[in-house]
Design a protein around this nucleic acid. Structure first.
Lengths: 147, 147
DNA sequence: CCCCCAACTGAAACTGATTTTCAGTTATCA
DNA sequence: TGATAACTGAAAATCAGTTTCAGTTGGGGG
């Protein structure tokens, strides 16, 4: 159950000069074990099981820290909030998010580079970044719905 | 200066059974004249010049109304808020947004349908929707920056 | 032309998410 | 062990957006 933190997380954090405190370990553990993207509130709820005194503010701060270190992705959710999921070793790309369970699948960025280049030619804009997110139902929630 | 409202806006609104009040006219006028996407606060600020008693709540309500009638687009902004810009006669598609001045260019949805289909095959997800937004600098702001 | 009333309005209070502030706590290094 | 800078939680502040409600008004019917 208490799966080990992903290789190197602890070291990455300490090398960057940050301290490894109990509240952080609680948040790290939750992120490390979840295969689906979590809301801040859900991270807080789960992490409290490991360290009940944990405050919501610290969850925000720790998530920001993990994002800045590149250990987790922050995904804008359809509803306006943010979702968090570990980056692992996958390169940053685009996301396909299940509307029901928040399972996230990374999808390759096929064709967007050339599309971007074409758009720069046509519009004169300097394209600096983009968002591509797809929403739908994962196979499991799809079945669930069909019952 | 006081450019006429886009052809048909007034009629669309009244045909849908809505009243054409002074507060609404103020918001409509602002949207009609802006070539760039505006935040709610900016719409409010500008519309007050036309009708000083205008409340922020009414701006929200009117924008929702215009979106539901398809007269303006609502775009999620990078910073978390929403931006609004008139739809005009362009079909809904994807957006390239200038980070500085909020100028918006519509871009065609090339290749996304087939990409979507391919993704459904590979992942088993039922894809129901997507967001594609590009961010960058428009030609004008680009020059400005280079000075 | 005026009257009526449902549609509409603004103010204020509320909500939910996130940030700031600050006094107290704690991990780590000497 | 200390010392101390990093870190923490609680509370208050902020910010975007919504709800509520008592008062106002556009515009069709008389």
């Amino acid at each position: 159950m208490a799966k080990r933190l992903p290789e190197g997380w602890l070291r990455r954090i300490q090398l960057a000069g940050y301290r490894l405190t109990r509240p952080r370990q609680a948040v790290l553990g939750v992120l490390a074990e979840s295969e689906v993207a979590l809301t801040v509130a859900e991270v807080h709820r789960r992490a409290r099981a490991r360290y009940p005194r944990l405050g919501l503010v610290t969850v925000y701060r720790t998530l920001d820290l993990l994002v800045s270190l590149g250990l987790v992705h922050r995904l804008p959710a359809e509803t306006g909030g943010q979702l968090y999921i570990r980056t692992d070793l996958q390169p940053p790309s685009h996301h396909l998010i299940c509307r029901v369970c928040h399972r996230v699948v990374e999808i390759p960025c096929t064709g967007l580079e050339e599309m971007t280049h074409e758009i720069e030619q046509v519009t004169g804009f300097a394209v600096q970044g983009h968002w591509l997110e797809l929403f739908g139902l994962c196979p499991t929630c799809r079945e669930e719905r069909e019952k």
